[in-house]
Design a protein around this nucleic acid. Structure first.
Length: 815
RNA sequence: GGGCGAGUGGCGGAAUAUGGCAGACGCGCAGGAUUCAGGUUCCUGUCCAGGCAACUGGGUGGGGGUUCAAAUCCCCCCUCGCCCACCA
């Protein structure tokens, strides 16, 4: 009999599978198998693989292998999201180029992936930091630029005055620079944006197609786009005659306006304050808020603010109300000015109370009398309009539409839709990213680099130390170019692109690896995509997925692809944590999978993490980690599988009837579980089958058919052990991973006898074996014949007998 | 503040989609066999209380409801987690 020794068998199969080229997706047009694109979110090469990678990629690999065995032509590619800030930080720390650190980590992760036995098609491997990849990132930028979807405008950035450098939000810790601890300031720089807001409505509408995405991700996408329906209303400044627009979702509260508030950045603030004679008091507030870095500006005092000394006239009733400037009004949303209705908006309410401003109730909740003086909080729900001139008595929410229609008819306002979504700021004042392929010419302005000149390469002789401008801007010669349009001296744009741009299209590139005439071939992409199954962390539930959806829609509009949503099904694995907290270097609680693999094998590591619980749930490694001195439970199970399959091959006898039925039931159950990502219960069913085989073998029976089926079903989960058994013990000529998924006979999978539960008044009193086909009448008889049931009934009268054949009978008595 | 999700043995979890035997499967633990010993492997037991047992009673965060029947459906509350948060 063969002992199970993972460290001996696993490296052998890694070599043989690669030599056999087992996992390539077939591009033969005559191949009529259904295509299945199984996409894992590609990793960032920040070191060796961590437990999160193990879980995510193990899940993806199970699906890919299962689909192969179901007869699909599977595309299961791998690549690296290899641009980004950590490489630059490592470069500063170690004084080596970001590329060295990055590609060393990539190689280590690639080696670990191989050792884990993932079924990747390595011929499609990509890295976003390779010139042959970012060439096409730049090409796509230019296509967006041509269509007006990439543009520049001023935007605030986080600035460290000590390092003289721009900081990403993640580099700002508690309002200070993560490197030197200096408080971060705000600066306004000209930045590149993608006009994702043009797609806001489509991004919202099309989530309805994403029926196989987790609900919470769909909800997050919806909330992030954040559509608000309301009205724009124009107010006039009494003292100056300036007109100011506001946006409101509650035009039905217009008669309750008792003051008016501007954002500190609003362009009229200084003029109005000077006119109102308040600039002396307003100025410090404005300057303080304006210089506060974005990453630092938090939810503050709702009541902070200063009067401007001027008034606006309410267009619905001609009332004159005072104007304020306050940080609780944001320039980025709506119009940067609001009408304040303290009776019906909590923030306005708090501000009014703090500044002793009047509060007027104009929406009464049904059947109540609200007294403004007695109110403890705003009433922001539905109700009946009062004190609202012609609209008294109207009920919200219908009143909102009526008031809006009236505003439009009267020319005092218009129906407006506002989105929370902002344009995507894609420029980074950083080195390790794809350079923005634009030249700045004094005469011609922003001039795109011609496609034939792509890629705009990153220079290698660069100073990474912080200070002054970005590393590319400091380079002595790199930025000097001749204008592609007029031929005069011009300068390259020295910003690089957000790494989210790189990751917004990588799944298209996998379809056309090495293609040199574009980012991808349309027929390749239309053949393989949309992605059938996408697997990755929920931390990408918003940005990465939204940006990818935006890219796909933009590419569709350009005629480059034939579909508008990139990912049909999405599955988010849970996080792997330790001791209730996320693993991190600073906490020193990182557990890496590869030492576990070295000791017990990849199959053990994969099974441990997949058996630990539902795929979407978090796993606390501290709770499932075995005693390091002891053999993990799943390893012992594989040992028992080896023993059982080995013994089964030595038997001449056929499988006993009970084992045959169990085998068919297991095939049915595991198949159903795999369709629903229920890896933990699938594995438990395989364990049950193993136990059943053991019993049969111990009873001197055969188990050969069960051994074949078990080995097949084990293949997606423990590919090495299954392959060893398949080829070396069951002696098949080719790999289990290209064999067929076992099928089941429904009549054999059905149970022949079942346990009939006999209840009296809802309490279980007996269990009786009946044939699965037992009739209602037969079940009733069996139940009433039960001694235990009769004893429980006693002398009480039977009022009713509920029969659910063949599983349950409930005898209801008079008690 | 808003949104979403989750609370089941000593532990991870199963049963929740479709109301019908709560605790599958595994870990751990206890006892036994093998072993010089540790580890390995195998067998038995393991929700709580009472009982030698048959069995009886209780039990899925708390409270209420619907139902012959609720871990599962409905309402209220508590706790925890995640996401978004001055969005007018």
């Amino acid at each position: 009999m063969r002992r199970y020794d993972p460290t001996e068998i696993e490296p052998k199969w890694v070599e043989r599978w690669e030599a056999e080229g087992l996992y390539g997706a077939a591009e033969d047009p005559a191949d009529e198998r259904p295509r299945f694109y199984m996409l894992d979110m590609f990793p960032y090469p920040s070191g060796d693989l961590h437990m999160g990678h193990l879980e995510a990629f193990s899940g993806g690999d199970v699906i890919a292998r299962y689909r192969w065995m179901r007869g699909d032509n599977v595309l299961h590619p791998i690549g690296w999201d290899s641009f980004g800030l950590p490489a630059e930080n490592a470069a500063i720390r170690r004084g080596t180029p970001p590329a060295d650190w990055t590609y060393a980590n990539v190689e280590q992760q690639a080696e670990s992936f191989r050792r884990l036995g993932f079924s990747f098609d390595w011929t499609r491997r990509l890295h976003t930091s390779d010139p042959e990849y970012y060439r096409w990132t730049q090409w796509l930028f230019l296509r967006l630029f041509e269509r007006g979807l990439a543009y520049r405008k001023k935007a605030p950035v986080n600035w460290c005055p000590n390092d003289a450098t721009v900081l990403a939000n993640e580099q700002v810790i508690a309002g200070a620079c993560e490197r030197c601890g200096t408080p971060v300031e705000r600066r306004d720089l000209t930045q590149w944006f993608f006009k994702i807001t043009d797609y806001a409505q489509r991004l919202l509408d099309d989530v309805d197609e994403l029926t196989d995405w987790p609900d919470r991700v769909v909800t997050m996408q919806r909330n992030w786009v954040g559509r608000s329906d309301g009205a724009t209303v124009t107010f006039r400044i009494d003292e100056t005659g300036d007109e100011v627009e506001i946006f409101t979702t509650r035009p039905d509260t217009l008669w309750g306006v008792t003051f008016f508030v501007f954002a500190v950045e609003h362009p009229l603030v200084q003029t109005l304050a000077e006119r109102g004679g308040t600039w002396e008091r307003v100025r410090p507030l404005v300057e303080r808020i304006r210089s506060t870095a974005v990453a630092v500006r938090e939810v503050g005092e709702t009541t902070e603010g200063e009067p401007l000394g001027v008034h606006v006239v309410n267009p619905v009733n001609g009332e004159r109300v005072p104007c304020f400037v306050a940080p609780y009004v944001l320039m980025e949303y709506g119009t940067g000015a609001i009408m304040a209705v303290p009776a019906h908006d909590q923030r306005d309410f708090e501000f009014a109370r703090a500044h002793d401003l009047p509060i007027r109730v104009v929406i009464q909740p049904e059947g109540e009398e609200r007294d403004a003086d007695a109110m403890m909080e705003a009433h922001d729900h539905d109700g009946v309009m009062v004190n609202s001139g012609p609209f008294d008595g109207e009920r919200s929410p219908e009143s909102i539409a009526n008031v809006t229609a009236w505003l439009e008819a009267e020319g005092r306002g218009r129906s407006t839709v506002t989105y929370r979504l902002r344009d995507w700021l894609i420029s980074r004042q950083r080195y390790w990213g794809a350079p923005i392929p634009i030249a700045h010419c004094e005469r011609c302005g922003e001039v795109p680099v011609p496609d034939d000149d792509l890629p705009v390469p990153l220079p290698e002789d660069v100073d990474f130390q912080p200070g002054g401008e970005s590393p590319l801007a400091r380079h002595p010669t790199w930025k000097k170019v001749t204008c592609p349009s007029c031929g005069r001296d011009a300068e390259r744009d020295t910003d690089t692109m957000d790494t989210f741009v790189d990751s917004s299209w990588y799944y298209f590139r996998y379809c056309s690896p090495g293609y040199e005439d574009g980012p991808f071939r349309r027929e390749d992409v239309d053949r393989w995509m949309p992605v059938e199954q996408y697997v990755g962390g929920v931390e990408h539930a918003i940005l990465h997925l939204l940006y990818s959806r935006f890219f796909t829609k933009a590419l569709y509009d350009m005629g480059l692809v034939g579909f508008t949503e990139p990912f049909l099904r999405l599955m988010n694995q849970g996080q792997v944590i330790f001791g209730g907290a996320s693993m991190s270097k600073s906490k020193g609680n990182i557990v890496e999978p590869m030492p576990l693999v070295a000791r017990w094998g990849a199959d053990t590591a994969r099974l441990m993490i997949l058996f630990a619980g539902p795929f979407e749930d978090d796993i606390d490694w501290q709770l499932i980690a075995p005693d390091p001195e002891k053999r993990p439970g799943v390893t012992s199970w594989l040992g028992r599988v080896f023993a059982a399959v080995g013994e089964a091959t030595e038997r001449e006898k056929p499988d006993p009837d009970g084992l045959v039925r169990m085998t068919h039931r297991t095939i049915r159950g595991v198949t159903e579980d795999l369709e629903r990502f229920r890896f933990n219960t699938a594995i438990s069913k395989l364990m049950v089958l193993t136990n059943e085989m053991r019993s049969a073998l111990d009873a001197g029976e055969g188990a050969r058919a069960a051994a074949e089926a078990l080995t097949s079903m084990l293949a997606p989960f423990a590919p090495f052990a299954a392959e060893e058994l398949w080829r070396e013990v069951l002696l098949h000529g080719s790999s289990v991973h290209v064999s067929s998924w076992p099928s089941y006979d429904p009549s054999l999978a059905a149970e022949d006898t079942v346990t009939l539960v006999v209840q009296v008044d809802g309490k279980v009193r007996d269990r009786v074996e009946v044939e699965a086909s037992a009739s209602e009448e037969r079940c009733r008889e069996m139940a009433l014949a039960s001694d235990n049931a009769r004893r429980a009934i006693g002398d009480r009268e039977i009022r009713r007998v509920v029969v659910r054949p063949p599983r349950l009978v409930n005898v209801v008595t008079t008690s």
